[in-house]
Design a protein around this nucleic acid. Structure first.
Lengths: 243, 243
DNA sequence: TATGGTTGTCTATATCAATAGACATTTAAA
DNA sequence: TTTAAATGTCTATTGATATAGACAACCATA
């Protein structure tokens, strides 16, 4: 964890330090002791006052990542970072595999609407064609990992909402509707600061980073079946592309 | 640009607003006028004081993204976002294609060293095997886009440093050393806040986001020839994965 | 039980971030 | 030339951020 923090940048020192410690925990530093270094050690490392480090640790405690115990130290409670393989066979649940004990997909909202220009372009439909929109949040071991808005051609996947709500999985919902297999055709990845909607949906703290994917799935004949914009909590995931 | 800014989060309002406006510019809002809305309009939109908006715009002006003209408004100077296709044939220069007039690859540092555990694992070498390390910064139209640290098996690519310095391109350097073609085998993508080294290498402002890729290239026989850790300025790039 | 190392709490002070208001300066258009 | 709209500059005030120091409370261990 070399490198000093930046002053007078509009980002408070305690937040920069919290981000760095969160990252270090996630990368497996401190695994030997299961504890964060003492506050005074961190303060010296970062070149700040001990109280500033305490603010950072308080924020991490608020997130449930660490827990301070008077007289002993600050214990690490959680450190996972899920890996998402991206390939022709990209799927959320099987991709996570054994990295989490339990995964859930929650339906936050839905609707049937006319395809916007963007959605129509990705799904290769005429603008204005009816599409079904699902707003979902996916969780691993109860912790939100991503929030997604997905669009499906309404004519072909009329029962998508019910199927998803029952199965909590896009793959299984497709199967119920007669599509046994599909292919990830395109994935675009960008990053941005979390917006207000992300903070609540993904249980993030402001200033956090979200990884944004725009993805299109096709059936085996190459016909688009789904377009999704998904927002991931960047400190909980990484993507792996295997060619 | 809906959604309010967050208070008391360790991220100053002016920085949140600067990030949002930068994003909006990059997304093509304001394209009709070529100008950012008036300060008072933005202040109302974000629910803050005009002076706070001015701080945000001053930061963007410092980055060269906007330029304020008294009496007229705040003009947009720059809005590009380069797209990087990631596939078996991922290459920096040809991937950028016609998105920039001129690309350069600058060698910042280099060395020959024993492979660390991580490097050895990716290059499938015994730990401690000699590898060549190159520190490079790649620019498009004079603007830094990414900084990379790359490792190559020293036994096979002894002249890598000279070849890169001459050609300013990994692909062309490989060609000079007798490797006419190679394949992108694996790419891992994560995101983080910019560190001190990023700020200077990529000419970023603190609080900015970097997209980090860890990539491994092989020759046509599947033998690893390069492992790279590359840090991209997130507001200047997006990745596209075509399967 | 005594000690060293750790987190918890309190006071005080200086600087940064944000708001508020007033007015100057510049530009474009009426 | 006048006016409206926009950015530029200044003063003042409040709250958040960061530093500094002192000491209390707690834990593990010698």
């Amino acid at each position: 964890m070399a490198g000093q923090v930046q002053r007078q940048t509009g980002v408070a020192l305690w937040r920069q330090i919290a981000d760095r410690i969160r990252q270090a925990i996630s990368a497996g530093a401190y695994d030997e002791t299961g504890m964060v270094p003492p506050e005074m050690t961190l303060a010296t490392q970062f070149g700040v006052n001990r109280h500033t480090v305490r603010s950072a640790l308080a924020a991490l405690a608020q997130e449930g990542i660490v827990r301070a115990v008077q007289g002993r130290g600050t214990l690490i409670e959680r450190k996972e970072r899920l890996n998402f393989p991206i390939s022709k066979r990209t799927r959320f649940n099987s991709g996570i595999g054994e990295q989490a004990r339990e995964t859930r997909g929650l339906l936050l909202g839905h609707g049937e609407e006319a395809a916007s220009d963007e959605v129509a372009r990705w799904l290769k439909l005429a603008p204005g064609t009816k599409v079904i929109r699902l707003e979902t949040v996916r969780k691993a071991d109860g912790r939100p990992v991503s929030s997604a808005t997905s669009w499906f051609p309404a004519a072909r996947f009329a029962g998508m909402r019910d199927a998803y709500e029952t199965t909590e999985s896009i793959t299984r919902a497709f199967a119920e509707l007669g599509l046994s297999d599909y292919i990830r055709a395109t994935t675009e990845i960008t990053a941005a600061h979390a917006e207000a909607a992300d903070l609540s949906a993904l249980e993030l703290t402001p200033g956090a980073i979200v990884l944004i994917t725009k993805a299109m799935n096709t059936d085996l004949d190459g016909v688009p079946v789904q377009y999704s914009v998904t927002r991931f909590a960047a400190d909980r995931v990484q993507f792996t592309i295997e060619n």
